[in-house]
Amino acid sequence: MKCSFLKQTVVFMKHYARCELSSKERFFAPLLFSATLLVMFNFSFGESIPRGYMVNIFVAEVFITLLFSLQLSFMRQFDLESEDNAFEVLRVSNVSYYALFLGKYFVSVISILCVVLPSVFLAWFFLAADLVDVEFSFYFYFSIFAALLGLSALGSLISALLQKLSGRELLYPLFFYPLGSPLFLLAQQIALFALEGKEIFSLLLVLLGLDLFYLVLALLLFDEIMT
């Protein structure tokens, strides 16, 4: 009856991937929200954005949009388990909580990338006319992806923690934004430097180090939450 750790992780990954594909509103809702935010930002800034600030505004727009839409996605991470109290069955069964968290984590990174990439494309499209001389570097996208790695761990952990509390909708942003802000700040800095052609390798290492730190912390604390 024993299932190895790796096999259980794969089982959870397949399961959560099936869950994501079967409830498509979990993908479309944050994406539509991103699009709405981008439209509002562009209306607010108007037509006359000084060329010198274009890159800064583009990066700020991307990250602020992601900040809000990711919060929507992460807050609902464990809704599937809460709907019919599958959480309790998971706690009773002989499953590895590390495998559960890792399965959830990997699927959430991939599914949220599917929200992030169209959002970044939309942000670029709305400013496209004025961005013809801005290079799109690999490191710009990599900074966003690296931020996602840490934020997914943190977002999933906080979602599991606050699942059964009545003030969840208020509490979640109060913890997610401050705790996730170092990742956002660092990723935003790297993205800006990447577009400006500055050196970013050391900052990237710091960001990846923070991601690893948050992932390990989230794994350890998730085990404590479930037991």
Binding site: R18, C19, L80, D84, N85, A86, E88
Partner: peptide, 8 residues
């Protein structure tokens, strides 16, 4: 409750 994933 039943411990089921309702979308599956």
């Amino acid at each position: 409750s039943n411990g089921l994933f309702c979308h599956l």
